[in-house]
């Protein structure tokens, strides 16, 4: 019964998220909107690469950074999506307190609200990869993709995204309105530490262990291996595919556990200080 109630909250939150995400315009404009942002983001890297290499995009480094950047969109979008719910519901629609009263589980509600972001980002990732293959010599052949491995890695990566989204949502619960940009800032740090657009080995030595403790490092590496048959970081070359999957599983679950506890802690602070329905805009 409790599970069914939670699933219902998840489904309703997903529906609500989709309405908020998409119903402000007509479908074709929404599709264009959903594509321009990620393609622009990818093109920034492409131009950076071009400007230094003089137009070469055939190297492994380019393929690795391009794929890494494409999949990292999930991290930014899901983290933002889940944490923004708190800010938007609380300060804009003023419904956050009612969601607390009505939803059987705030965790499922927040996760459900991110489903629309997941769908839109999935479209964006597909478009960016397609664009890379068609125009930028990205060595991606559908026949060579290890689909089973990709599915497993992707599922665990999304779990990690949800966990980090929950962490950010916890921070939002006690933050003022100017916290709306925190998820983006935090995603930027992960972008650096997880070797998304360069091999982990390029990071200064003290930062490398931090990168190795974050699930996204393994996620991005696993995605590269699934799609292109090889990773990008020499320091992870000795870790086989199964081990990548196992580390990803364990680190994602650990992050999720930490995130749930962290959110509960932040929620307790918010309830103690009367912040659940605060309006702090300035």
């Amino acid at each position: 019964m409790a599970v069914r109630m939670r699933l219902r909250a998840f489904r309703l939150a997903a529906w609500l998220g989709w309405q908020m995400e998409s119903n402000w315009t007509d479908p074709w404009l929404f599709a264009v909107y959903s594509i321009i942002k990620p393609v622009s983001s990818a093109l920034i890297l492409v131009v950076m690469y071009y400007v230094v290499t003089g137009g070469q995009t055939q190297g492994d480094l380019f393929a690795g950074l391009y794929v890494g950047n494409a999949f990292f969109m999930y991290v930014g979008q899901l983290m933002f999506g889940m944490s923004w719910v708190v800010m938007e519901d609380r300060e804009f629609f003023r419904t956050f307190k009612y969601m607390y009263l009505a939803a059987p589980s705030i965790y499922w509600y927040l996760t459900g609200r991110a489903v629309a972001k997941f769908l839109v980002t999935s479209l964006a990732v597909a478009v960016v990869l397609g664009f890379g293959t068609a125009f930028l010599d990205l060595p991606l052949a559908l026949g060579a993709v290890r689909w089973g491995y990709l599915a497993a890695v992707l599922a665990l990566g999304i779990l990690a995204c949800v966990a980090f989204g929950l962490l950010m949502a916890g921070i939002m619960v006690i933050s003022a309105r100017h916290g709306q940009g925190y998820a983006e800032s935090f995603a930027g740090v992960l972008y650096l530490l997880c070797g998304v657009v360069f091999p982990l080995d390029v990071l200064p030595a003290p930062l490398q262990p931090v990168g190795r403790a974050i699930p996204f490092t393994y996620w991005i590496e696993g995605v590269r291996r699934a799609l292109m048959g090889r990773g990008m970081s020499p320091s992870l070359a000795g870790v086989d595919d199964g081990a990548i999957l196992a580390i990803l599983l364990l680190s994602s679950l650990a992050t999720l556990a930490v995130a749930v506890l962290f959110y509960a802690w932040m929620e307790r602070i918010a309830r103690d200080r009367g912040l659940i329905d605060q309006v702090t805009e300035h």
Binding site: M48, L65, G188, V189, L192, L193, F198
Partner: peptide, 23 residues
Amino acid sequence: SWVAFEIAMPLLSVGAYVFLYRA
């Protein structure tokens, strides 16, 4: 709270592009 998120983190985030150029 913004001090951490608006000063330290953006710098680290820009760092990704620095390391890309270095690479």
